[in-house]
Design a binder for these strands. Structure first.
Lengths: 210, 210
DNA sequence: ACCTGAACACCGTTCAAGT
DNA sequence: ACCTGAACACCGTTCAAGT
């Protein structure tokens, strides 16, 4: 009796949390499972596929939360909440953003379900045509995942690099001084999501509730 | 008389255009320059630094175009134009988006200058406080670079993967059908930038010109 | 059905030594 | 100042062969 794909994916997720994405190799993963690296290719066709399935597990907690807004006019709040939930799910795993970046939605089905739901809500509740609804949904996912990647990566910004940026670019230096403190990541995430939601409100057809 | 850093960076850019980012290794680059791989470490401290300098060259065409809007009230048009110019500059090199993704602004100085200018315009012309101006600028860069990465990467989406997405997610399937055609990338880019610009207008203090 | 052994074709980086 | 030789410590992936 050998290993199963689900076990492979969950072990990979544990190694990710312990050592980060750049230490997650198929050889290490195989070692952890007590097999040789090529054995993994029976369970998974490539490393990218493994990362896609890991993304599926990472984003799975969102799926029960995807019911649309009870009141269609409340779609902006629903979208903010959904973006926040995705952000949290990605932050819950070390390098979760980087794993999800570029994931194929055919394998990261939970992420696909999030995308699908956002398209529906932007189409049906916000009143965008389907093409723009899907563009909007893509932009939301890209922004949430992209911001999470930066948040989880900024360990490796050296103080010297920061000092150089500061000395070259005075407005950014002043801005960085204002953005000290542990809540800045959360505030910046909220700000970015708000920009998008307000932008979507601006391009959406006017609602009777306005 | 040996090689110079500028020569290293420009040769790297040529190899990038010819073979793409995943084939750009320090060994190949060294071979192209007629030296051994470790020789590159005299000119550049790491591969990431090389990519940062490549980003600097890629984004350099923007620098002469960075004068702010003549009329402060015209900042939304200025921002759309600047985003478009950055997009074009990144598209001008194979995998240009991926190279710029995560570049350090202390070495990719031209990209730093773009960021700095956007912060200034959002602060002085749009009237955002400095913290939000820098958050807004960061969001713009992230969106432009992120969309360019996706645009330049979508060669490797297999038809089978697409078919699976289509069969699982009906709204996305319908949306994809509407988004056929060669202009969709440009339209989607414009849509995403518009979302952000409209969002910024919404959070900016009202202007006398409104 | 599930895995191993052995190999292919590579990586980025370090560092003593050479000129 | 600029580069080589040799090595360290790895990678993802393929494929014939084994059980």
């Amino acid at each position: 009796m050998g290993i199963e794909r689900d076990q492979v994916v969950r072990t990979a997720l544990r190694l990710l949390d312990e050592n980060g994405l750049e230490k997650l190799s198929l050889r290490r993963l195989a070692g952890e499972l007590g097999v040789q690296a090529p054995a993994l290719y029976w369970h998974v066709p490539s490393k990218r596929a493994l990362l896609d399935h890991m993304t599926d597990v990472i984003v799975a907690p969102l799926v029960p939360e995807l019911a649309g807004p009870s009141d269609p006019a409340a779609w902006p709040d629903w979208l903010r909440r959904t973006a926040g939930l995705l952000h949290e799910a990605l932050l819950a795993h070390r390098d979760g953003g980087a794993v999800a970046l570029g994931a194929g939605l055919h394998r990261a089905v939970a992420l696909g379900a999030v995308a699908e739901r956002i398209v529906e809500v932007l189409h049906e509740a916000a009143g965008l045509d389907l093409a723009d609804a899907s563009r909007g949904a893509g932009t939301v996912l890209q922004l949430v995942i992209g911001r999470t990647v930066e948040e989880q990566a900024l360990t490796d910004v050296t103080p010297e690099a920061l000092a150089e940026v500061r000395s070259r670019f005075p407005s950014m230096a002043a801005a960085l001084a204002l953005r000290q403190g542990p809540d800045d990541d959360a505030a910046s995430f909220r700000f970015a999501v708000d920009l998008l939601v307000e932008g979507l409100r601006a391009v959406a057809p006017p609602d009777r509730a306005d």
